[in-house]
Write a protein that binds this DNA or RNA. Structure first.
Lengths: 227, 227
DNA sequence: GGTAATTATCAGGTAAGCCTTAACATTTAT
DNA sequence: ATAAATGTTAAGGCTTACCTGATAATTACC
């Protein structure tokens, strides 16, 4: 498998777990920024190799083997992110791009050795779970910030691995591991107000949906940089 | 620059520093296991990009910019080898192949961070010097095992980064850092006899040429596994 | 149930990086 | 000085992964 094919599998995995439905060539083309024709060709190649099942006018879904490959990539990606952040002191927003390259040249041997070296971590620096070697993806019952109740306190434990959002969070001073209190949720302006380090900050619903938190005892307000 | 071009530069660098002369397309083709025609095309591409100067019937030599690129790759390669060996406990013979892949996806940023993380090492696990960030290649006045004098003792400090040789050394029980005494050099059978851990072992001239040693006080016979 | 919108596919094209075959140029060695 | 050896290059082909434009199949909706 090469870079191109691997990218298809990764995108398929993300889109598929996002809404469970088969992915259309059009969606794939849009996500990968390729023409539909290219997608069509590549999907057929992947289908021939048994990584996906493609049904015209319905969409593509990963087979068992395709899912395994995608999860393996995700695992390698997150292990490298962990390495870059924890060992090389890369910042949060820098790690994604490097990991994107490294994951494609990582053998199973290397993956395992890295995993051990890093102390068998369960979560990448963004708080996303690292799949097990067997390909199982641990799922924590996390609460989206959208579901958090005003008055209660939470710790930010998971953010999406997207450059744009990460930079935004950095700018407003919100970091993984930070504790905050939800002040109010305003459904008119679509804004959630948080109290972070004794200051009020506002977060739009669009971003809030992507942030996951865990509840913490009500009085704790301090910040745990977690680094 | 991509994988293919980078491999050309690396091979050019190795061949060129081996004997200082411009490299013929035929030699390159042999080394890279490509056709001469492919080499011809690629060399022209590299010349157009100013990485090499190519003179028909004379050969190719790296320009300043080509040399810089090649040395940078060598540096990345050796840093990864160091990482794999020291941190992930890969064995001697395993590291080359993985490093070969990793070096091509290593940014300057990553290279520097890795260098610091590893404690700014000067030598890769095979004993080969790691070039500086500025592209300088430290040169130690090492003695080839061929030049070692019978009766004297030496420590093995440098071996070539070649799978075949490494496996051979492993088989005969000779490891980097080992101390040994040169017993005799037989120019009829082209064999050097060493005393290693109280046992005599024989090494052909062909391999002996590739091994570098440093002299140690005469009575020391113990082995320093160095790992 | 027919038409519009969506989705898929056919035909043909490009660039990179490899290939073979065969002709041609230059160097070298006798 | 010339033949043999060596090196170069032109011509044409292949595969991969991308592209555009045009056409066909399917689905959605009024």
């Amino acid at each position: 498998m090469n870079r191109g094919e691997e990218d298809y599998l990764k995108v398929l995995y993300e889109l598929q777990t996002a809404d469970g439905k088969p992915v259309s060539n059009a969606t794939l083309a849009l996500t990968l920024d390729h023409s539909v024709q290219s997608v069509n060709e590549m999907i057929k190649k992947l289908a021939a190799k048994n990584f996906v099942v493609y049904t015209p006018y319905l969409g593509t879904r990963l087979t068992q083997s395709g899912t395994t490959a995608a999860v393996s990539l995700l695992r390698k990606h997150r292990l490298w992110e962990y390495f870059l952040h924890e060992k090389l002191h890369y910042s949060w927003e820098e790690i994604h791009e490097e990991a994107e390259l490294l994951e494609h040249v990582t053998s199973t041997r290397l993956e395992e050795a890295l995993f051990d070296f890093l102390g068998r971590p369960s979560y990448c620096p963004h708080g996303n779970p690292i799949p097990t070697l067997e390909g199982l993806m641990p799922q924590l019952p996390l609460i989206s910030l959208m579901e958090a109740e005003p008055g209660n306190s939470y710790r930010l434990v998971r953010v999406p691995d997207e450059q744009q959002v990460l930079t935004y969070l950095l700018n407003i001073g919100l970091a993984l591991g930070n504790s905050m209190q939800v002040v109010r949720q305003d459904t008119v302006s679509d804004i959630i107000t948080l109290k972070l380090r004794h200051e009020h900050i506002a977060i739009g619903f669009k971003v809030a949906q992507l942030l996951y938190v865990e509840p913490i005892p009500n009085k704790v307000q301090s910040t745990h940089p977690d680094e």
